[in-house]
């Protein structure tokens, strides 16, 4: 029994996991340990497993994932900063039989694109929105995001984000709870917050993303909104492993994981 060799194990019939065929051969340009890659991977797996690659049209944001279109072997459009929900609306309204998803970061979805986000959600567009929240502007070099935590140091809050001055006069504002906000809108069907920092979380997240696509495929009306609390080790200035630890200790208390709304019903916790 102990005679089994690696060669015996590494055989095509024993293969239990490899990256989705719906990812191109292009190397991710993301920093080592960045959650974007993991999220890309599981979205590709979901599209592959659902067999919807010929019907899917993705919308890439402006931000670190701006070139997401290079990595997915499905049709893709690149949006202006924050406009992805408007693009998704445009496509879905004229091609209601296609599966349309946006992929956006926190600056894109919750700052410059807040109007597009809120109104696509309020109209209840039958689309899937993937929202990667790492509390910072990654691509431009680590400036404050709408979701930056209180006290968190960024390039534009070098002494820590201070929502207000001591006397209560406004300063950087508070971390924007955009996901809670869209959950309040009657147009959102499924709103959930997930993470990808460990294997169990990745598996949960994949289930949520799958549901977010399935709802759309089944022509169930309403926006399917999946937030993924993620990392930015480069701009948080720590190692990937430390960033995932920091995320759990600091991000999750403010952005707790779990379903927030399902079948148009808010989930009370």
């Amino acid at each position: 029994m102990s005679e089994i060799t690696l060669q015996d194990i590494i055989q095509p019939e024993n293969l239990v996991y490899e990256k989705s065929k719906l990812l191109t051969d292009k190397r991710f340009h993301y920093c080592p340990g960045c959650g974007h890659g993991t999220v890309h991977r599981i979205i590709a797996e979901v599209i592959e497993e659902l067999g919807i690659d010929e019907e899917t049209i993705g919308i890439a944001p402006v931000g670190c994932a701006v070139m997401a279109y290079d990595y997915f072997d499905v049709d893709f459009q690149e949006a202006a900063h924050g406009r992805a929900p408007a693009l998704a609306t445009g496509i879905k309204r004229v091609w209601p039989n296609k599966v349309v998803f946006t992929y956006q970061g926190d600056g894109d979805l919750a700052a410059i694109g807040t109007a597009e986000t809120i109104h696509a959600c309020n109209r209840g567009e039958n689309i899937t929105m993937i929202f990667v929240n790492n509390g910072i502007y990654g691509m431009t070099g680590g400036q404050m995001a709408p979701t930056t935590l209180e006290g968190m140091k960024t390039a534009t809050t070098p002494y820590g984000r201070k929502p207000q001055w001591e006397d209560g006069t406004p300063n950087n504002g508070f971390p924007l709870q955009i996901t809670k906000l869209v959950a309040q809108l009657p147009g959102t069907r499924f709103v959930t917050r997930q993470a990808v920092y460990d294997a169990a979380k990745v598996r949960n997240c994949k289930k949520a993303i799958k549901k977010a696509f399935q709802n759309q495929m089944e022509n169930k009306n309403g926006v399917n909104f999946v937030e993924i609390v993620s990392n930015c080790n480069s701009n948080w200035k720590m190692s990937a492993v430390d960033a995932n630890k920091w995320l759990q200790e600091n991000m999750l208390p403010v952005y707790p994981l779990g379903d927030i709304k399902d079948n148009f019903e808010l989930i009370n916790k």
Partner: peptide
């Protein structure tokens, strides 16, 4: 931007 997307489709 809706025009952009629908035209691109």
């Amino acid at each position: 931007n809706m025009i952009y997307a629908a035209g691109a489709a």
